[in-house]
Each structure stands twice: as structure tokens, then as C-alpha cells.
């Protein structure tokens, strides 16, 4: 069986993601250790809360960011970022001041622009429409409901947009490029659709 490193940096609902990955047929290893990341076939980066706090948490683990960079960008291990784990792929986060992100996808993470009658945070089930065919994001076709709980979004380069959602504006609810996938919603809390997406990620050979 393939090993999945589920990154533990003190920010995220690890337990829920771990259970959902297990249900999807994987054997997740909860870790922040560089050697475990080097040995893992796939990487999942969860994240909840504020961009700056999550980036601080990642940076606080010795050698973690460098180990992730090597595994994902150099070795090409399939990567899935969830919620703030997707937002961290930005060049910069604009929540509570400016914070440098990982920059793997690029763009900025900024507050969702909503109208006077739209609620914020964007909490609940909304449709995610794939922008193109993709082995992992095909789980969302034609436009499945998935669970969101956030106020900030990633503005990624246009050619990396994997799926979009509407709430006040149309925003990228998923990004994809090469071996990288990021989702703004929570597959671990999206019942059957989320488990299907995780299964596809577990089997994906980019």
C-alpha cells in the first residue's frame, strides 16, 4: 500500500482528514518529520484558521518546508492541499497583514468579495464546477455540492484553476497543476463526494 504523509503542524482537523483518507483506502501517516516526508508516496497538507498562523506553524517545524519542497516540487510526489493547505500555495496571504506563502501555485490569498445580502463566512454546501477534466477533480463533475467553511480565497493564475464556486463572486475552489491539487472545500466533510475525491487522489499517477 502507498504511504501518505498527512502533515501535522498544529493547524488542522487531522483526525477527520486521517479517517477520511483511511476510508478512501490509504494508510495515512501523521507526521512533520522530514525523513517520513522523504519516504512518503503522497503528501496531504490540511489547514484551518488564519493564513499567517498556519504559515508560522509550518515554519516552526525544523526542516519541514524544505522536506515538502523536495518531495513535491523535485520528486513530484502527488500533493493535496485542503482549505488553508490550498491557500498556502499562494505567493502571499493578506489575512492579518501580509504573509509570504509557499508560492507553489502563486497568486494572493484575500478575503472573499461578497454582496450586501451574502453571508460571510461562506459556510455550508455549495456547488463546485470543474473548469476542465482532471483525474482527481472529476469527482466534482458535473457540479457537486461540497462543504465550505471559510472567508478567504486563493486568487491563482488563471491556468491553474481546477474548479469554481459562486458566492458573491466566482472564485477558484480548486487549483491543479502538474502533481499539485488544492481544494478550498473540505473533502473529509463532504460525505460521499469527498470520499470519492480522496479515492481518486490516492490512485492518481500524475
Amino acid at each position: 500500500m502507498q504511504t501518505i504523509a498527512l502533515i501535522d503542524y498544529g493547524a488542522g482537523n487531522l483526525r477527520s482528514v486521517e479517517r477520511a483518507l483511511a476510508r478512501a483506502g490509504a494508510e495515512p501517516v501523521v507526521t512533520a518529520a522530514p525523513d517520513a516526508i522523504a519516504a512518503a508516496d503522497r503528501i496531504v497538507l490540511p489547514g484551518q484558521g488564519a493564513f499567517a498562523a498556519c504559515m508560522t506553524g509550518l515554519s516552526a517545524q525544523p526542516g519541514l518546508i524544505e522536506a515538502l519542497r523536495r518531495a513535491v516540487l523535485e520528486r513530484g510526489a502527488p500533493f493535496l492541499g485542503i482549505c488553508v493547505g490550498m491557500q498556502l500555495l499562494a505567493d502571499v496571504g493578506l489575512e492579518h497583514g501580509e504573509t509570504q506563502g509557499l508560492g507553489w501555485i502563486g497568486g494572493a490569498c484575500r478575503v472573499l468579495s461578497v454582496g450586501p445580502k451574502d453571508i460571510l463566512p461562506h459556510t455550508g454546501w455549495n456547488t463546485a464546477a470543474p473548469a476542465r477534466a482532471h483525474p482527481v477533480l472529476d469527482a466534482l463533475a458535473p457540479a457537486r455540492h461540497v462543504y465550505f467553511n471559510h472567508s478567504f480565497v486563493l486568487d491563482p493564475p488563471a491556468n491553474t484553476i481546477g474548479a469554481t464556486t459562486e458566492h458573491g463572486e466566482t472564485f477558484a475552489c480548486a487549483v491543479a497543476r502538474d502533481n499539485l491539487v488544492g481544494v478550498q472545500f473540505h473533502p473529509e466533510k463532504s460525505q460521499a463526494v469527498g470520499i470519492d475525491l480522496l479515492q481518486r487522489f490516492v490512485r492518481w499517477s500524475p
Binding site: N126, A129, F148
Partner: peptide, 8 residues
Amino acid sequence: MTLAARII
């Protein structure tokens, strides 16, 4: 598409 009303 719109955010769905929730039943809890």
C-alpha cells in the same frame, strides 16, 4: 449556483 440551505 447558490449556497444551499442547511438542515441540521
